[in-house]
Amino acid sequence: MVKKLILSLLFLVPLCSLWAQKPDATGNARLLKGQDTLQQLSQNIFAGKGDAGREAAIEQFIPTLVRSLKTPYSFRFSFDSLRTVSILYPKDSSFRIFTWALERETGFYRHYGAIQMNTPDGQLKLFPLFDVSDYITNTDTIANNKAWYGCLYYNIVQRHYFNQEYYTLFGWDANNPRSQKKLVEMLTFKNGTPVFGGPFFSFAEDSIPKPSKNRFILEYKKESTATLNYNKELDMIVYDHLVSETNEPAKKYTYVSDMDYEGFKWQAGKWVHVNKIFHDAIPLGKGAPVPQPLDQKRKSMTNPKSIEDFQAEDAAKQEKQTKPIKKKS
Rank of each mutant, 00 (worst) to 15 (best):
F95S: 00
N229S: 13
K252H: 12
L228I: 00
Q40H: 13
N44D: 13
K317T: 15
D131K: 08
A204L: 06
S306N: 13
Q40L: 15
G113K: 09
T71Y: 01
P324K: 04
Q39N: 14
C151N: 14
G171N: 09
L82E: 01
L218V: 05
A29W: 06
L65M: 07
P209M: 02
S207V: 02
I45K: 13
I136G: 06
G107C: 05
T106V: 10
T64A: 11
W271L: 00
L15F: 09
K297R: 10
T193M: 12
Q180P: 02
G171P: 08
E55T: 15
S17C: 04
D260R: 13
P211G: 03
S74E: 01
K213T: 03
W266A: 01
Y73N: 09
Q158T: 00
Q158S: 13
P63H: 03
L10H: 14
E248I: 07
P63T: 12
N163A: 12
L10V: 10
N275V: 15
I62P: 05
T188H: 02
P304C: 04
Q40A: 15
A250C: 09
E165P: 11
N175I: 08
E185F: 02
F310N: 03
N155R: 07
A143C: 11
N163R: 09
M1K: 10
T137V: 15
I208P: 14
L169V: 02
P249C: 04
D140T: 14
A204Y: 06
Y73F: 12
Y167S: 01
K22S: 12
K146V: 03
